[in-house]
């Protein structure tokens, strides 16, 4: 297993680099691959680039790079949150989408756009902040609704998630109708997509992602133990209830960061964790970092696909995640179904 893990980690890392470079070389404006590489090397390692067009440089460094990195972060966030939710709820169908946390974050973000329409810095940070609050409210509600006698059965949690998702989506639609002039902004944000997002958004998502991931890594061993039985975890010295709360809040924070920037992108949080688990096993100490890579790679590929397949028209990336993700997932599942246990 150790050798297998090392192999897949190296492979994922390598793939991530390749995919990121490939994504950087794809865009609305045709830029020679050589130029892209030269600018990247220049920015990353201060290797002097031989007289490149400054405009091309701006496009690569200020438009493409933040977008590609943002996509990577969003994918990583959703995958990591998916791993956390699936693990903690011991539910193979849990992801930020299915348990309603995404729509909670979306509702929070919508509310912030309605209540704080000014385009100031305050409202810039308010979107993820409100999103986080919305995600927590959704999570709390699902937790309460789905709990049966101190347990969280798969079925009731999913039902509660579906109910909360539809309810919150209805609230979002309602607020859009009430929004008047703000409707356009909300609409643009809801359909998602990573266009028009520069470096400040990269900062913004990393403010949610980094502490969230750190908390999850910090609790990953405890999470492993909880998975094999809460009572024994307690007797091994794990603070089970506190760990659960920390993991849920951290996963919600990470989800809120992704959703408040890219809108609702489904599927990533559901399938990437399973795919990664099939490849490297169930240990969360490795599962979280591998999901960062896996989710990042997956969304970078889908976003590149979304903006190039019908160029110059961009497809909503959520459509592409489902379109590419479903067959890939079925492929993985069929190959491993003999051995794969959740």
């Amino acid at each position: 297993m150790r050798g297998r893990r090392l192999f897949f980690f190296t492979a994922l890392l390598f793939l991530a680099v390749v995919v990121l470079i490939f994504a950087m070389a794809t865009g609305a404006v045709d830029i020679p691959f050589k130029t892209v590489l030269a600018v990247l090397l220049n920015r990353l390692f201060s290797i002097p680039a031989a007289n490149t067009d400054p405009t091309m440089e701006v496009i690569i460094a200020q438009i493409r790079l933040p977008r590609v990195i943002l996509g990577f972060f969003v994918g990583a966030s959703l995958a990591v949150a998916g791993v956390a939710f699936q693990g903690l709820l011991q539910n193979p169908l849990a992801d930020p989408y299915t348990i309603g946390v995404s729509s909670g974050a979306a509702l929070g973000a919508t509310a912030s756009m309605l209540l704080l329409p000014a385009a100031g810095i305050g409202s810039f940070y308010a979107v993820p902040l409100f999103g986080f609050a919305g995600a927590l409210i959704a999570l709390f509600t699902v937790y309460q609704l789905g709990r049966v006698g101190g347990r969280l059965p798969v079925v009731t949690v999913l039902l509660a998630g579906v109910v909360i998702s539809s309810f919150f989506s209805a609230l979002i639609s309602l607020s859009m109708i009430a929004a008047g002039e703000q409707m356009r902004n909300i609409f643009f944000w809801l359909v998602g997509g990573l266009g028009f997002k520069g470096w400040p958004y990269v900062t913004l998502i990393s403010l949610c992602f980094s502490p969230g991931l750190a908390l999850l890594l910090y609790k990953s061993r405890d999470l492993n133990l909880i998975l094999l039985g809460e009572e024994e975890a307690l007797s091994l010295g794990v603070e089970v209830e506190r760990t659960k709360k920390i993991v849920l809040v951290a996963a919600s924070l990470v989800t809120a960061g992704a959703v408040s920037i890219s809108g609702m992108i489904g599927f990533v949080g559901l399938i990437v964790p399973h795919a990664v688990r099939i490849l490297i096993g169930p240990d969360h100490r490795f599962l979280f970092p591998a999901s960062v890579l896996g989710g990042g790679i997956f969304l970078t590929i889908t976003d590149t696909f979304a903006r190039s397949v019908l160029a110059p028209v961009e497809l909503p990336v959520g459509i592409v995640t489902a379109f590419l993700g479903a067959p890939f997932f079925i492929f993985l599942l069929r190959r491993h179904r003999e051995k794969y246990r959740f």
Binding site: G87, Q90, N91, N224, I226, L227, L228, G229, E230, E231, E232, S235, R277, G281, P282, D283, K339, Y340, R341, F342
Partner: peptide, 10 residues
């Protein structure tokens, strides 16, 4: 304990 988690394939 008697109770087992859903368990993952460790």
């Amino acid at each position: 304990a008697q109770e087992r988690g859903a368990g993952f394939n460790f």
